[in-house]
């Protein structure tokens, strides 16, 4: 293999030449990141403005035009109950993004605060937080989600809260780890020497430095939760119909995979692109904030 020369000799040079983020080759980082960010922006805009777009009613059934292939009156075809797929995918994207945003937001807000506090204070507080996180993480997450949705019902708000709850322990861990790194820094010691209160230090010195890695975590959590909601749908416990998320549309589209694969593939492609975009952006953010971390 010719490779070792490329590694052994130029490596020393190139490393000092410019700091390169690990994990992704430089060029891919550039183009990929921007394409991903563009897709996310478009998806958000389209989903937010879904009601303003000239789309057919996503819930209107045309029972005699079921499972129509793309083309003609329906740009992307119809689903198994005769509803326009383009409209449904856009509205489904909206629901998925809503769940995918609100759940991690709740998790990061709650878990991030707890983790930050734990990392800063250390001692008993830290031990208590980490034990709490460990216990929640030891619980099989899908089972917890199942039991909670079976008990509380599958209303959208329940799903958001339940998936958020499941993400809290991971948020605690990440926030604590990052806080530990930051809390050692000189400017924190300096602030404390100047007599700043703990709360002030946490808010003004630590929080700004924690935000970027937490944002990366947030985006990864978004991707995971969008996929997890789909998993719940596969067990019949996703968002309640006729509301659809990308995951529940894929689950429903399975029944027609053979005769009308577009019913599953249209939402699948949308979910895939969205999740991929989130992963790419998250990775880029992570590389920027901590070059030694790279992709994990």
């Amino acid at each position: 293999m010719a490779a070792p020369e490329a590694v052994a000799v130029p490596a020393a040079d190139t490393d000092t030449a410019r700091p390169r983020p690990r994990g992704l080759p430089w060029r891919l980082y550039g183009a990929g990141f921007w394409i991903a960010a563009a897709w996310l922006a478009v998806a958000l805009a389209v989903a937010a403005g879904a009601d303003l777009l000239p789309l057919p009613d996503p819930d209107k059934m045309d029972l005699f035009a079921r499972a129509q292939p793309p083309g003609g009156a329906h740009v992307l075809g119809t689903d198994a109950l005769g509803r326009d797929l383009l409209a449904r995918v856009i509205h489904g994207l909206r629901v998925s993004l809503a769940v995918g945003f609100l759940s991690p937001f709740m998790a990061v807000a709650l878990g991030g605060a707890l983790g930050l506090w734990a990392g800063y204070r250390g001692g008993r507080v830290e031990w208590a937080m980490m034990s709490l996180a460990d216990v929640l993480l030891a619980f099989p997450p899908l089972v917890l989600a199942l039991v909670l949705t079976a008990y509380f019902g599958t209303a959208l708000i329940n799903i958001i809260l339940i998936l958020g709850l499941l993400t809290v322990p991971a948020a605690i861990r990440v926030a604590r780890a990052v806080t530990l790194a930051v809390a050692q820094q000189e400017y924190v010691t300096a602030a404390r020497a100047l007599g700043a209160s703990d709360l002030r230090i946490m808010l003004r010195e630590i929080l700004p430095n924690v935000i970027v890695p937490m944002t990366a975590f947030f985006m990864v959590a978004m991707a995971v939760i969008i996929v997890a909601e789909g998993a719940l749908s596969f067990l019949g416990l996703g968002v309640p119909p006729p509301m659809a998320s990308l995951g529940s549309m894929i689950a429903a589209g399975r029944n027609n995979l053979e005769s009308a694969p577009h019913i599953a593939f249209v939402p699948a492609v949308a979910m895939f692109l969205t999740v991929l975009a989130l992963n790419l952006v998250a990775d880029a953010l992570q590389s920027r904030s901590d070059p030694s971390q790279g992709a994990a």
Partner: peptide
Amino acid sequence: AEPRGQAVGQIFQAFWEAVGVRVTLDPVD
């Protein structure tokens, strides 16, 4: 909560909504 139950449920829900009745689906195991 099975696909069949949900599909038929949505069809009837659509019939009833069309005449002005508000129907919420409650899928359960």
